[in-house]
C-alpha cells in the first residue's frame, strides 16, 4: 500500500442498491415477472438505519408514462434520507439528468447512454461537477481471456476496448466508476478480484456483482475497491448492512458505524 493511500481518513463504503419500477422496489425473476419488494423510501430508511453509507436507486423508468412517479419518489428520498443517494436508469440526454437533479438526487449513474453518447459525460460533469456522476461499466471476462464491455443490461457487446473506455470516461470527467463483473453477477461467487486489483484508476471504484457473504466484501475492499454495492444479500435479509460492517471491522477494515 502506498503512502498516499495510507494517508486517508476515508473509509470504504457499503452501498445497498434498490431496483425501482413505478414507484416500487422490484426484483426480476427468470420469468421476467417483477416481484414487489416494497416501498423504496421505507427500504432506504431501513438500510440507512442499518448503517448504509449511500443508497443507489436503479432502473428508475424515467420514460414519459411513469416519469412523474419516479421524480416524486426522488423528491421524497431527498427530503427523508440523511445520507447521499444516486439514481440511474433510463437516462438518455442532459434533460433527463436535469430532472433527476432538480428533484434532489445527489448523483446520477449511466451506462448505455454514456457509451452511445460519450459527450453526455462532459455535459454532466461541466454542469453539475464530476462528483455528481458515476459511470457504470459492465465488464465480461470472455473465454479468450479478454475483458469486454457490454451495454443494454449486458445484452450488447461494445467494440471499444475496456481500457480505452475507462481512460475516456476519466478524461471526460466521470467522478466514480461502478464496475460490474458480468461473469460474477448473480453467481454468488464473490467479486472479480483480479479486475479490481488491475483497476488502478485516478478515481474511486465501486465494486458490484457477486456479493453473497461478508467475506466477499472484505476481499473486494482488500483488492482495492473504494466502495461495494450489493442488492440481493440485503434484500433477501441474509445479512444486514451492520452485520457486514461488523464482520469487516473484525477483519481490520475501518468502517463508519
Amino acid at each position: 500500500m502506498s503512502e498516499l493511500i495510507k494517508k486517508t481518513s476515508l473509509v470504504p463504503r457499503i452501498i445497498p442498491c434498490l431496483d425501482v419500477a413505478n414507484g416500487r422496489v422490484v426484483k426480476g425473476t427468470n420469468f421476467k415477472k417483477l416481484l414487489d419488494m416494497g416501498d423504496p423510501i421505507e427500504l432506504a430508511l431501513k438500510y440507512q438505519h442499518q448503517g448504509a453509507d449511500e443508497i443507489v436507486f436503479l432502473d428508475i423508468k424515467a420514460s414519459v408514462d411513469n416519469q412523474a412517479s419516479a421524480l416524486a419518489m426522488i423528491k421524497q428520498v431527498a427530503t427523508t434520507l440523511s445520507i447521499p443517494f444516486t439514481v440511474g436508469g433510463g437516462i438518455k440526454q442532459l434533460s433527463d439528468v436535469d430532472r433527476f437533479f432538480n428533484a434532489g438526487a445527489d448523483k446520477v449513474t449511466l451506462n448505455t447512454a454514456a457509451v452511445e453518447n460519450p459527450e453526455l459525460i462532459n455535459q454532466i460533469a461541466n454542469k453539475y461537477g464530476s462528483q455528481s456522476l458515476i459511470i457504470a461499466i459492465d465488464v465480461n471476462h470472455e473465454s479468450n481471456g479478454e475483458h469486454v464491455i457490454y451495454t443494454h443490461g449486458g445484452s450488447k457487446r461494445v467494440k471499444k476496448p475496456y481500457q480505452t473506455w475507462i481512460k475516456e470516461v476519466v478524461e471526460r470527467g466521470a467522478g466514480e466508476i461502478l464496475m460490474t463483473a458480468m461473469h460474477k453477477d448473480g453467481t454468488g461467487s464473490g467479486f472479480d478480484l483480479d479486475l479490481l486489483e488491475q483497476a488502478n484508476f485516478p478515481l474511486p471504484i465501486i465494486a458490484s456483482g457477486g456479493a453473497n457473504k461478508p467475506e466477499d466484501f472484505l476481499h473486494a475492499i482488500n483488492a482495492g475497491a473504494d466502495a461495494v454495492l450489493a442488492a440481493g444479500i440485503f434484500h433477501r435479509d441474509e445479512f444486514t448492512v451492520s452485520e457486514v460492517k461488523n464482520y469487516l471491522i473484525n477483519n481490520n477494515i475501518s468502517m463508519r458505524v
Binding site: 493511500i5 486517508t8 473509509v11 463504503r13 453509507d53 475501518s254 463508519r256
Partner: peptide, 27 residues
C-alpha cells in the same frame, strides 16, 4: 491524493470532543 474527487465518509480529528472521531460525508 491520486484519486479525486474524495468521495465518502471520513473521521474528524479535533481537540473538541463534539467533533472528534465523528464520521461525516465529503465530496
Amino acid at each position: 491524493h491520486k484519486k479525486t474527487p474524495m468521495v465518502g465518509w471520513a473521521q474528524l480529528t479535533s481537540n473538541d470532543e463534539f467533533y472528534s472521531q465523528q464520521f461525516v460525508y465529503f465530496v
